Simulated assay, not measured.
Amino acid sequence: MATKREITKQKAREYDRASKKEKGRILDELAATMGWSRANARRQLKAAGKRKGPASAVKRKPRPRTYGYDTLKVLQLVWTLSGEPCGKYLAPIMADMLESLERFGELKPVEDRLNDHVRGQLVAMSAATIDRLLKPAKDARYPDAVSSTRPGPLLRSEIPVRQALDEMEQRPGFLEIDLVAHCGHSLEGEFAYTLTATDVFTGWTENIAIKNRAHKWVVQAMTTVAKRLPYPMAGLDCDNGGEFINHALVGWAAERTLFMTRSRPHESNDNAHVEQKNGDIVRKSAFRYRYDTPAELSLLNELWGYVNLRKNLFLPTKKANGWRTTRSGRSTRTYDAPKTPFQRVIDSGVLSAQKIAQIEDLRRNTNPAGLTRNIVRLQQELIKAAKTKTLAFRNRVS
């Protein structure tokens, strides 16, 4: 823009002194150089002739703020009570979340700020604007962990490989599964794990904390996941860890006529759905501390009950639905509109009318802010329990 202004300023001086024929030539030349129409070129020359001093000295008048302090404070509270989702997931549920929080009386701290103008701004706010306004709060509110995955060569040849480029599942029931270690910064000794199971089609996610990654605990956790799902399980996809590639889990799947696949070694994108949940749910909710006692295991499972309920009923996700070719010829993923796992399950048509009524009643009678308060309470208990071990490890290392 500065270059355009300089060129236009120079041409404006020449334009003022030129004859009618020369003015036409200048307009044609400027329109071809800048990509403007002749009418716009004429307007730009006229404006440049009135400007004082060099083009670099021209200062644009700052645009007035669109969103005021009241809107920001209400947005921060809604974001906190809904579980701190990013803008692209908060924007689609803003109207429903405001309605739910008001119905349960959770917006009383900002009720004097929440007028019709603020409400309209919140509902119309784009995802990018939400992220931009919340960035200072996120920065003010907010160590790498080690991996415990070990290869399981047993039965590997009998389980087919599923790749990231394979076709997406078109019905609910196919789950990607993975384990996350709660080892802190050391793999020494025994510590808890969280099994994450997420449905590729609906995004419905269940988490179960287990004592260790022994085969019997993994099978027991998968049995619990199968009971909690609102629809039948159809298949499993896992990585190449020995906790999954074993006779116990393969036999469990065979008994239930579930087909089982595995990812390629060292290709985490083959399990992209569950890997995303590992970060968004497990690490975000339970952090990276060490949990290795029965009390901490109990706290984790209580935490996952509230986290899964909030995630499945209230927080939307996007789902890859195909590919498109960009203007440069590259292929890129396309995604559908954000929907909650609850909405995707209802829209799938696999539930009976009785089951639909049961889940809808559960959502209607669940206070999202109450879920968040319970999650924060349990997180504080976990942090308190892990504090002594974390300090002891730091002192030993130092």
Rank of each mutant, 00 (worst) to 15 (best):
T3D: 06
T3H: 02
T3K: 06
K4L: 11
K4V: 09
E6P: 00
K9N: 07
Y15A: 05
K23C: 06
E29R: 10
L30S: 04
T33N: 03
M34H: 09
G35L: 09
S37V: 09
R38H: 14
R42S: 13
A48D: 02
R51H: 07
A55E: 06
R60W: 04
P62N: 03
P62W: 04
G68H: 04
Y69G: 00
K73H: 08
L77N: 05
L77H: 05
V78M: 12
T80H: 14
E84V: 07
C86R: 07
A91W: 03
M94V: 09
S100G: 01
E106P: 01
L107C: 00
L107W: 01
K108L: 02
R113F: 12
L114Q: 05
L114S: 06
N115Q: 09
S126W: 02
L133K: 13
K138W: 13
A140N: 09
V146T: 11
R150M: 15
P151Q: 15
G152Q: 06
L154D: 15
L155Q: 11
R156G: 11
P160I: 13
D166Q: 09
E169N: 12
R171I: 09
F174W: 08
L175A: 07
A181L: 06
H185T: 12
L187M: 14
L187G: 08
A192I: 03
Y193E: 08
L195G: 07
A197P: 06
G203V: 04
A209H: 05
I210R: 07
V219G: 09
K227E: 11
L229I: 02
G235I: 02
N240D: 14
G242P: 06
G242K: 14
E243F: 11
H247N: 08
W252K: 06
F259K: 13
N271Q: 15
G279K: 10
I281W: 00
V282I: 11
S285Q: 10
Y289S: 13
Y289N: 13
T293H: 08
N301R: 14
E302S: 11
L303C: 06
L303R: 04
V307K: 05
K311F: 03
K311V: 01
L313Y: 13
F314V: 07
P316L: 12
W323T: 15
W323G: 11
T325G: 09
R327M: 09
R327S: 10
G329E: 11
S331D: 10
R333F: 03
R333K: 15
P338G: 02
K339T: 04
T340E: 07
P341Y: 01
A357S: 13
D361M: 08
L362N: 00
L362S: 03
R363Q: 11
Q380V: 04
E381C: 05
L391C: 00
L391G: 00
A392N: 03
V397R: 03
